[in-house]
Design a protein around this nucleic acid. Structure first.
Length: 424
RNA sequence: GCCGAGGUCGCAUAGCCCGGUAUUGCGCGGGCCUGGAAAGCCCGUGGGAUCUUUCCCUCGCGAGUUCAAAUCUCGCCCUCGGCGCCA
């Protein structure tokens, strides 16, 4: 959520941002109008409250000195003031809540270097890492590999839960655990604190970290309790300091979260999504930074560097892209993706997403740090380290052999105790 | 789940019984003092509006009673202690 001062003093910046995104200015104008209306009615109500408080003080004074008639006289003058205040307050509260629910839907201001474009076709290539391995055979896609080796039981997953649920078993399940262990060790080594978050969050905390439309398309709601299963540990880890004022000496806060992630994936269909590429539940190792606003762009580069070093160490071929305006979403100001090469699919596909959300989440979460000029919003950043299901797909497709076996990446062998994954 | 005690400004604390301007300490920031510092002293330290001077809101959340609620009443949430259940 953008700070109100942006709308009052720099509305031109928001308008220019909407132009880059191809959005109309209607909701900006409406926020400004409602703000104006709120301030006006709020001021009027405050003046009435002032009268009421003065009268209340007068009554207290009169009663203290035993002058009942003076007290009654004041009382008579202000009998209907309460009703007037209620009426005005109701209106101003309405303006305020309309203003803010509209404001929640207005996206973050994009960084200047975000390329303009309608969809992911316009994302720009930043760098290439590793090399396409020479395969003297027709590479299988991961869906064929899991079937051939018996590592994933999709049909029984569908039976006991639903489509896109699965049982992962044998050496692939072990490799999943090895990736979690390796990924978190890698970041602990770099000064991140390992955190296991709650896997459900309440509505208020959740609204602080995500786009409202995600409640319909992404998150599972838990009834009868008003809980939501987390779609990523980014959400609880970022919301962790909600409603807090953080001492500057505590910054930057660097966390590595490991958790299952739950996603409804409403509207996602198609052949390209077979197997475990797009599923309702997977495990993810996530990096989080909460920092001073002056440092967030440096931390953004650091998060990307961590992801790059980690994926390089796995010996995988991938590319880094700069996400364009149309592919950006509401919360991030700038986002890099890592896209791994999938020989079986013959394409690069998203495995890591690295975002600087600037003060957008912090404003919603009322998450501030102390400065000599008062309290001001921190910046929040997040980046995938390893989403295990997708890393597994990349490993299976890039490390596959002609006979359908799959080699274990060098750095994971100590965790696995073997060089080749065994089939079931 | 049951019983009991609690939730007050960054932290700690007073006020609640008996309704009438949110107390004090610590921490932090600024100033005075000093060759410099410590100590000491003074001011500031939740959010918002504003005609720049003042005002309004804020005592876990919500509703009610009242001219007036941190204070009284009701409901809910959370924390701590005890009991029960339990990996």
């Amino acid at each position: 959520m953008l700070d109100m001062s942006m709308f009052r003093d720099h509305a031109d910046v928001i308008r220019a941002d909407h132009d880059r995104r191809g959005l109309s200015h209607d909701s900006i104008d409406e926020v400004i109008r409602l703000d104006d209306e709120w301030r006006r009615s709020r001021y009027d109500a405050d003046q009435l409250r002032k009268q009421r408080n003065e009268a209340a003080r007068g009554i207290a004074e009169a009663k203290k000195s035993g002058d009942e008639s003076a007290a009654n006289e004041i009382l008579e003058r202000v009998t209907d003031i309460g009703a007037k205040i209620d009426e005005l307050s109701l209106y101003s509260d309405e303006c305020l809540s309309k203003r803010d629910s509209l404001r929640m839907g207005i996206p973050n201001i994009l960084h200047d270097d975000v390329p303009v474009g309608e969809d992911d076709q316009k994302n720009t290539l930043l760098s290439l890492h590793g090399e396409k391995s020479e395969m003297k055979f027709e590479p299988r896609n991961h869906n064929d590999l899991i079937e051939l080796n018996g590592w994933v039981d999709l049909s029984r997953g569908a039976k006991v839960a639903g489509s896109r649920f699965y049982f992962m078993q044998g050496d692939l399940a072990r490799l999943d655990m090895a990736l979690q262990q390796y990924g978190s060790d890698f970041l602990i080594e770099r000064g991140y604190t390992l955190v296991q978050p709650p896997l459900m969050m309440n509505r208020e905390a959740y609204e602080g970290v995500t786009d409202l439309s995600d409640f319909e398309t992404v998150m599972y709601g838990i009834k009868p309790d008003e809980y939501y299963l987390i779609a990523t540990s980014e959400h609880p880890l970022t919301a962790m300091r909600m409603d807090e004022i953080i001492e500057p000496s505590e910054l930057p806060i660097k966390l590595v979260g490991v958790s299952p992630c739950f996603r409804r994936e409403v509207g996602a269909h198609g052949l390209s999504d077979r197997g475990i590429w797009r599923v309702h539940q997977f495990t993810k190792v996530e990096q989080i930074v909460i920092c001073n606003p002056d440092e967030s762009w440096d931390h953004h580069e650091d998060l990307l560097t961590n992801a790059i070093d980690l994926w390089d160490s796995l010996g995988l071929h991938y590319r880094v892209v700069n996400i364009c305006t149309g592919d950006m979403g509401t919360v991030a100001s700038r986002k890099y993706d890592l896209e791994a090469w999938l020989p079986g699919a013959g394409s690069y596909k998203e495995v890591v997403s690295c975002s600087n959300c600037t003060d957008y989440q912090a404003n919603r979460l009322r998450m501030r740090y102390r400065t000599s000029e008062g309290n001001s919003a921190v910046h929040t950043l997040n980046s995938t380290a390893i989403a295990t299901s997708r890393a597994l797909v990349a490993i299976m497709e890039q490390y596959q052999n002609e006979d359908g076996t799959v080699a274990v990446p060098e750095v994971l062998r100590p965790y696995m105790g073997k060089e080749i994954l065994e089939s079931l």
